[in-house]
Design a protein around this nucleic acid. Sequence first.
DNA 1: TTTT
DNA 2: TTTT
Lengths: 130, 130, 130, 130
Amino acid sequence: MINQVTLVGRLTRDPELRYTSEGTAVATFHLAVNRNFKNQAGEIEADFVSCRVWRKLAENVANYCRKGSLIGITGRIQTRRYEDKSGSWVYVTDVVGDDVRFLDKRKEKNVIFTEGRSERKTDIQLETSK
Amino acid sequence: MINQVTLVGRLTRDPELRYTSEGTAVATFHLAVNRNFKNQAGEIEADFVSCRVWRKLAENVANYCRKGSLIGITGRIQTRRYEDKSGSWVYVTDVVGDDVRFLDKRKEKNVIFTEGRSERKTDIQLETSK
Amino acid sequence: MINQVTLVGRLTRDPELRYTSEGTAVATFHLAVNRNFKNQAGEIEADFVSCRVWRKLAENVANYCRKGSLIGITGRIQTRRYEDKSGSWVYVTDVVGDDVRFLDKRKEKNVIFTEGRSERKTDIQLETSK
Amino acid sequence: MINQVTLVGRLTRDPELRYTSEGTAVATFHLAVNRNFKNQAGEIEADFVSCRVWRKLAENVANYCRKGSLIGITGRIQTRRYEDKSGSWVYVTDVVGDDVRFLDKRKEKNVIFTEGRSERKTDIQLETSK
DNA sequence: TTTT
DNA sequence: TTTT
């Protein structure tokens, strides 16, 4: 079945990096995603989405993101529940990311812009091709 | 900012239709979205996503969907929180849908297939508008 | 950067399965995706999106899909261009799928429903890993 | 049916604003979306996606975007075809946007941050409306 | 070259 | 409170 999420927002705090007992890295953080419409008071609110990424991605997020970083994340919604101390069920919803883009990096690193080859040419073409 | 969700899954129960004090229709339901991978035990699990739609969409969902209906929904993640009786915050995550497709309808109704004609029309408009 | 597509539609013909010179399987097909609104004449039109999937997915699509099959596909938009015989550039846009769901299969196969158990397990792990 | 696209990329040139014969604004532009993986030569390539937005959105894009602007766009894939001078069919694929985010704006304007207050309000409404 |  |  289909379960696909795309978010662009800012970290509400530094990400938290932990490791499972098997040694797998997990990073968790909340994204503040400003809404694209105003409430009755004319203000813009935000949704605060809980996100989780695994392995190499987790380490990258921990290394490159801080409170306030603008990121794009794609992934899926995951739900789970657990019993709290008082014995009642708590339902939790997270976004599990399979890709994260760091959108306020000044410039994309490691981008050897070969579009030179393709892009520049393309541009010319777009010119020429009218 | 960007906040976009697409889900395809089945209703876990009949949708619930209610009205706000202003008379606006809201339908709520849970979607069971089977995961596309197996757990360690070789079984497929599901995520149970809480969904909410408003107005005409709410009434359509209430009219056309039942427990087990297969639907596609597109929308966004919305978060909110409230204080429970004991004074602690409860965090809630829902998908607010802006479009719902009924995927087990035998055949799409009112589909008169007319590709070609209208596309050419579109083209002429754009031509003219240069 | 972010490039994410989700489509649900029907195959306009049987998929075509081919192999690259290195022996990698590729399946191509077109999806007819009915629009969710009517044109001025009150008719529903469709978009005909060219899709491509690789490897195991290609073979699954070739085995399980036929003209008219309802599928969901997630992936990304890919563009390329080539020079035709007359020396002018042709621009091509395809959706490259990374996941395909067969939506008119009577029932999901191999789905053994086990919510609860495994979710709790996941939770325990996370607890431990703090 | 479902047809949903999310892209984040940079404009390859300034957008072009035109008007249909009925006076409706249309803006067209190409987005360069860097791929998240390298080719055999270790370089990052891009997809060049043709985009189109209408009405107020078209005017906003024309006013606020320039060559190189980083934007996020959500919308759907639209296909059409036309007959060229030589009488053969040309197939065209565009993304028609229903929302555009300007991602290199220094800071979101008019964002008065009010989480909590309004969320509680929403909740009360729902309570009342049962 | 277009599906139900 | 969980679907096929």
